[in-house]
Amino acid sequence: MALRRRRRAGPQLTASLTGGAPGLPAPSQLELDRRAFRTRRSRRSTGVALLSTLVFAVVAYLVVTRSPGWPRVQTTFFSLSAARDAFPDILRGLWLNVQVLVIGGLLVLVLGLGIAVLRTLRGPAFAPLRLLATGYVDLFRGMPLIITLYLVGFGLPALRLQGVPNSPFVLGTLAIVLTYSAYVAEVFRAGIESVHPSQRAAARSLGLTHRQTTRIVVLPQAVRNVTPALLNDFVALQKDVGLISVLGAVDAVRAAQIQVGQTFNFTPYVVAGLLFVLLAVPSARIADGVAARARRRQQTGSVL
């Protein structure tokens, strides 16, 4: 972490090294010494960090590969041929996960924002709505996702009501949306409450209604404040879409399970897991970038 922060600070440092602001006299000897010391120190700590990482990697590699069970583990979990055989099915399954992710993600945003707005309504007239929203959040944030999946996935169709779908894809998405929108509602609510009350006062003093104030003044600022947190939840959602497999939807996890059942080789699980990681990496990097940008906006110039 220290290593990374140092590198981020790099461009500014070099900019000032190559002459500084135009019109300023050449830096004093004192400053030159300080810069030389900083450069030496940062080179040394980079070296130490690299070396210690390398040593750790080698030790970990040796411990694992020298363990008594390693040959067995290698063939059961890391078999190249098994991976090759399972790959097409798992990839097809992953496409289903991506669909759940996209559709579910959008629904979560809409529902979460709606619930958050309901929870921030003031006045006795809105008490029932507020209570309902609070109850919703308490229920689905507390309930383990897997249980929500079972209840929605097996309970809803069992009612045999007209028009209730029984596709595990639809029911799985519904369960995930129920759980995640409760989380995301809380993120949005934190964002709404982070907007200073004086912004609301300014908007109302201009004659904007409560609704206009929320929509035009508060929500845009709230969403901007919580974008990093939302992206974090999105990354979590990316792997939790794999849980729809418990309802029998043939997604990446289920496809891997089928292969495992046929061959008694666990490599397909590893393949599916790696595919989920690959899916998550870009969003994680985007989340990092957005968070870093927000930080820069808030504390321009600070090195701490």
Binding site: S198, R204, L206, T209, P220
Partner: peptide
Amino acid sequence: ADAVRRRLGVVFQTYNLFPH
């Protein structure tokens, strides 16, 4: 009240411009 506020202008100590 919204219609009343429309008829008065208020300026605050902390400016309160909308930053976005």
